[in-house]
Design a protein around this nucleic acid. Structure first.
Lengths: 131, 131
DNA sequence: GAGACACGCTTTACTCTATAAAGCCGGCAG
DNA sequence: CTGCCGGCTTTATAGAGTAAAGCGTGTCTC
């Protein structure tokens, strides 16, 4: 074997988390993407808004961003003579989001590993002063 | 039993993730906190900088923010006649960070649950147009 | 038929913030 | 004493999240 312990995604620095794509790493958009991945047939604007507890303007802007990135499709239609917007995640969006989620999983693992280990902080040697 | 299925942290809306504290939910600070929780005895500025792959100014600012929030302690000292800064997570910081991590874990669970389920998007009914 | 009102979003304006670049300060070498 | 380097801080700027305002269409009521 050439590589006893490959560790594919960690060139040099630990805890750098380069894979945490900015576009997904945002409370509101995390909720939107999770909602859309969960409901693969799509969600109308109002339902998505309720699921994610967002205001209209807010959801609109985030959807615009995700759409420009090619991660969600936006379809316009009508329901009872009122306009309706249907949102669906694209296949690419789905994949990239799940990659992001994998990185997030390693973050959680790292943190929990640390938590189980060291209990509490010891005193410092002389010569250090706070603040 | 009064509550068959309590679900403590979910009042009404799903995928809202209110527990995702802004101060931790940031790539750089996630790395810093994980590093500090992992090294409970503390880390000097330079080591932390390398671990998180941050620039000096960047790390300085993020530490300042975390310190003002009471989540990290900053100690000043000297090493070989050069100033050194030692950073340690506070007990409160450690706790709050792990709470944040728990929320992050539910995000990951939600997304992965969705991923295992629905495969791909069906066609839309007539009357919808894209963009 | 003309306001008034509600629905379903979009657009705008503001504030906050991450980060690159510049600055600062003491020690050391020549 | 002049310049340079290590070890951070401070500043400046671009970018982004979000509350508030705006807009267009349908549906009442009088």
């Amino acid at each position: 074997m050439t590589h006893p312990d490959p560790k594919p995604d960690e060139p040099t620095g630990r805890f750098a988390y380069e894979g945490l794509e900015r576009i997904f790493h945002e409370k509101a958009r995390l909720g939107i993407m999770t909602s859309l991945v969960t409901h693969s047939r799509g969600l109308v604007f109002a339902d998505l808004k309720d699921l994610c507890q967002l205001t209209d303007g807010n959801l609109s802007r985030h959807l615009q961003i995700l759409h420009e990135a090619g991660f969600v499709e936006i379809w316009k239609g009508f329901h009872k003579k009122r306009p309706q917007t249907l949102c669906r995640v694209t296949e690419g969006g789905r994949q990239r989001f799940l990659e992001y989620i994998n990185v997030l999983e390693t973050v959680v693992q790292d943190a929990l590993k640390a938590a189980s280990g060291s209990p509490s902080s010891p005193k410092l040697a002389e010569g250090w002063s706070p603040i």
